[in-house]
């Protein structure tokens, strides 16, 4: 089966610094792929090139179901079937939870220039169904600004799924959440992904989350892909241990910063 996403020779220089060098990988349909590595390893740069916020060096290629993504602005990449969530949630705070989803649907159905319909009456059922998917339907009428952080994360997930994407890009989906919440959110994501047949690429610092949910892991260091494999393979990989996972010493969390 041909991959959903195929990344070839992706590189990015900032000034003279090679932030990302010649990265290649594929994502299969329904695959849950984690991108890990120390701070400054190029995860975010990679991500921003996939979603169109950064322009890579010439020569590379990123194809979604055979269509080239590079050089396309973020909004068009979204239209081609890539949903995304942000490290720090981005939602429309002056709207209700339901309206946030409706906005995504309105855009998906290309009705943002409609000046006469009542926005709140459009796609209510579809929006409720999406909220159901993330178990948020009882919050539908609440103002988005009143939500707890964990709920905002779930809302973002529902927004990202509104246009039935083929691929979901999640940047540090569990940042700022308690461990119990993290597992719950990722379990929910994994469940939805499996049912809907979406592929996911996510970056993550919490190794529990990574090992529990990813099908495959890519490890970046200094802009290069240094390892690739299942959780067990990555855990056993001596290079990865050295640059990233560490041996559980005192400043375990900070090891990653050393290489930044």
């Amino acid at each position: 089966m041909s991959p959903v996403l195929s990344v070839r020779n992706l590189s990015k220089n900032f000034g003279g610094i090679k932030a990302v060098q010649d990265v290649n990988f594929d994502v299969a349909k329904g695959e849950f792929l984690a991108l890990i590595g120390p701070n400054g390893a190029g995860k975010t740069t990679c991500f921003n090139m996939l979603n169109g916020y950064l322009k890579p060096n010439s020569g590379g290629s990123v194809q979604l179901n055979g269509k080239e993504l590079l050089g396309t602005p973020p909004r068009k990449i979204w239209r081609m079937g890539v949903g995304r969530t942000f490290q720090i949630t981005e939602t429309f705070l002056s709207m209700t939870v339901l309206e946030n989803i409706q906005m995504a649907l309105i855009s998906h159905h290309r009705r943002v220039f409609d000046m006469f319909s009542r926005a709140t009456r459009l796609y209510v059922d579809e929006a409720m169904a999406l909220l159901d998917l993330v178990s948020m339907s009882e919050h539908a009428e609440r103002a988005c600004s009143e939500l707890a952080y964990g709920d905002l994360k779930r809302l973002e997930l529902a927004i990202a799924l509104a246009h039935e994407p083929a691929l979901l890009l999640m940047d540090e989906p569990t940042a700022g959440m308690a461990p119990s919440e993290r597992i719950a959110l990722m379990a929910l994501t994994a469940d939805i992904v499996q049912r809907e047949g979406v592929s996911v690429v996510f970056t993550e610092h919490d190794m529990d989350v990574v090992f529990a949910h990813s099908h495959r892991i890519l490890v970046l260091n200094r802009g290069e892909l240094i390892a690739e494999g299942t959780g067990d393979e990555i855990r056993a990989n001596p290079t990865v241990q050295e640059v990233y996972l560490g041996g559980g010493t005192l400043f375990e969390d900070k090891k990653e910063a050393a290489n930044a």
């Binding site: 979603n51 239209r79 429309f92 002056s94 709207m95 906005m103 309105i106 943002v112």
Partner: peptide, 18 residues
């Protein structure tokens, strides 16, 4: 609504294809 959305979060608006 889309205008208000852009005012609230340009990033999110862009990320839903606006």
């Amino acid at each position: 609504y889309t205008l208000r959305g852009i005012r609230d979060s340009q990033t999110r608006a862009e990320a839903i294809g606006v």
